[in-house]
Nucleic acid binder design. Sequence first.
DNA 1: AAAGATAGCAACCGCGATTTT
DNA 2: AAAAATCGCGGTTGCTATCTT
Length: 194
Amino acid sequence: MKKPCYAKKNIKEGAWSEQEDQKLKDYISAHGEGSWHTVPQAAGLYRCGKSCRQRWLNYLRPDLKRGNFGEDEEDLIIRLHALLGNRWSLIAGRIPGRSDNEIKNYWNSHLQKKLINKGVDPNNHRLHHSFSNLEKVTGASATKSHFENEQGCSDGNYNSNEDQRSWSGSDINLDLASKISPPRPINNEANSMD
DNA sequence: AAAGATAGCAACCGCGATTTT
DNA sequence: AAAAATCGCGGTTGCTATCTT
């Protein structure tokens, strides 16, 4: 029913130019965040509000760090993911200077592989004794040789001697466990009831 | 050196939740 | 109370840079 904003006339798509970024920054520094649907017109942008919001939150916000993730950040993301699952906005809320999109991308491109290298299933943070279902975990592009090549992964946060959940989340004093429901199941088992 | 494969990232899209009318 | 509008989240796609052969 509802047309996506990108389908409307006079709405630009694709990469943002410096001029567009500057217009958005100028507008928000003058008027503040919010009322995203009115921002494009007010700021003189041929974008939809949704796109402006995304651009601001993920890339233009002055408090964003950008750049490489530190080991402490990686560790925190892994622990939070074990506790929260794919709820990136909640995870981002606990990691200053990082956007949910950035964390999500970093997880998908780096951390998943890192965990798999350690023999840990990134979906449930349990030790994986066989990689027979590798494709399911990592997507079609994962190959055996890829994992063989990445054995030199450095930090040793996972203990391969443990047989149960390696990250329980219980040692994280984030005041989250009591406030939110457990992570949604990621695999298809949860949906198989349909 | 060139072509193909792969990885990483920015942005798009769909949908559920929330707020407003 | 219901419908419409808007917001926000998370999955996915597509482009570009880098690596491998």
